[in-house]
Design a protein around this nucleic acid. Structure first.
Lengths: 237, 237
DNA sequence: ATCAAGTTGAGAACCATGTTCTCGCCATGA
DNA sequence: TCATGGCGAGAACATGGTTCTCAACTTGAT
């Protein structure tokens, strides 16, 4: 479909007359762009609704029907934009992890020590800052942890892409740490994956295992400390 | 309906004659025991079928209908023995983890150094020995990793119980290591949980992420080495 | 203004799966 | 012989993902 538009500049007319094909192209583009905006606007509404539902109703509550109820759109509108539920989940993954890693990157840029940066990132993930993992009572993080492995099986490449930003952030700090001599020499990718897996899985296993909701804050802080201690030793030079 | 039969022992006759109620009880027990054996035999067949299906067809292939097809039993027979699919999954968890931890315990008992024992256990899990995690092409391990978090949410206590044996094994080695001074002082439970989560999640994420099936053996060995190095540093004194 | 054609909303329809229910067979004991 | 409980077979129901149909609406052309 895009090839059609692309072919326009290739016609000799474009060279000879110049203008017509130009505004034609611009006009067509404009229409397409408008269409695209509408399409994207709705796509965004769908993803946002899914994002909210994941938080309020958990993974079991995230049904296509519920999402569409919430947006007021028709099922058809969904299947025009997403190949299926997995695509939607991947979109939520992408959005969430991208937001979270941006958030963490900001939160951390004023720190100089790579180790300190990693500490901050890990702690933030556990404590649920940055809209990622375990926001207070946050089912979204738990849901994402759970879906992680399924998507790793069903759509490895897309998942890898979605997780990219956060892993990238970790890799940066680890690489910097290695250059500074505070992190042991190893494949940064591998270390990042290990740290990420450890943190995300453990947080949810532990937090859900208790569920008592007691002195949650203290518990979680302790958990964050334990996890970080574990990671620190595992990656330190 | 059952209340009618139940009312019988409540009659004064039972107390006055004495004996009858005794052999009645024994007889009833015998029948019950015989019944129990049959019941258990079938339960075992169901669990075994589920265990095999998990390996051959993955989590999506594990449907009640498929399990019952394989055993030749009726759906009713299933719902008489299990409260639902989750119960079946928990049973598979229990059986698998119990078998695996027994296997690991044997494989390790001839080693003296707790650290060496842990090394062996972690490596075995990654390499898929012991019927646990990632047996060659093993979907069962992947499936179990995936279900882990869902069950942690839905049935935390039962899951904890099912995982018990393996965690217990890890805790033993960690405690021994602490006493021997080769493992740092910390809550053994916590360390065990961290190690277990790290290993089980990472194995499946990594192995499924590639899926290329290339020099799998080498890859997996490298993965095992990396994971162990991570753990070793994390828990060493 | 009217019509043709594409677009889109509403929801019926289809399928798979978990779960429950009904029916009838059959063995066993009175 | 007959009543009864256990059990297999599978119908039935609910839910959720996915596809399909139909009609209203939009838009551009005549």
């Amino acid at each position: 479909m895009r090839s059609a538009r692309r072919s326009v500049p290739d016609t000799p007319a474009a060279g000879t007359v110049g203008h017509p094909s130009c505004w034609e192209a611009r006009s067509a583009n404009r229409v397409v762009e408008l269409g695209r905006d509408q399409i994207l606007e709705r796509s965004r509404r769908i993803v946002d609704a899914a994002y909210e539902l994941l938080e309020s109703a958990g993974l079991e509550g995230l049904t296509i029907r519920a999402v569409l109820n919430r947006t007021g759109l028709a099922r058809r509108a969904f299947y025009e934009r997403f190949a299926g539920k997995d695509d939607l989940l991947l979109a939520v993954f992408e959005q969430t992890l991208s937001m979270a890693s941006r958030h963490f990157a900001e939160q951390v840029e004023h720190l100089d020590d790579p180790m300190e940066r990693l500490h901050r990132i890990v702690t933030s993930i556990v404590l649920g800052n940055g809209t990622l993992a375990a926001g207070a009572g946050g089912r979204r993080g738990a849901a994402m942890s759970r879906e992680h492995l399924r998507l790793a099986e069903a759509r490895p490449d897309d998942l890898q892409h979605a997780i990219g930003p956060l892993l990238e952030l970790l890799v940066q700090q680890l690489s910097a740490g290695m250059q500074a001599g505070v992190v042991r020499q190893a494949e940064p990718q591998r270390l990042a994956a290990l740290v990420y897996n450890l943190v995300s899985t453990t947080v949810h296993t532990e937090l859900l295992a208790q569920e008592s909701g007691q002195s949650d804050q203290a518990h979680r802080a302790q958990l964050a400390a334990d996890i970080w201690e574990f990671c620190r030793r595992a990656i330190a030079a």
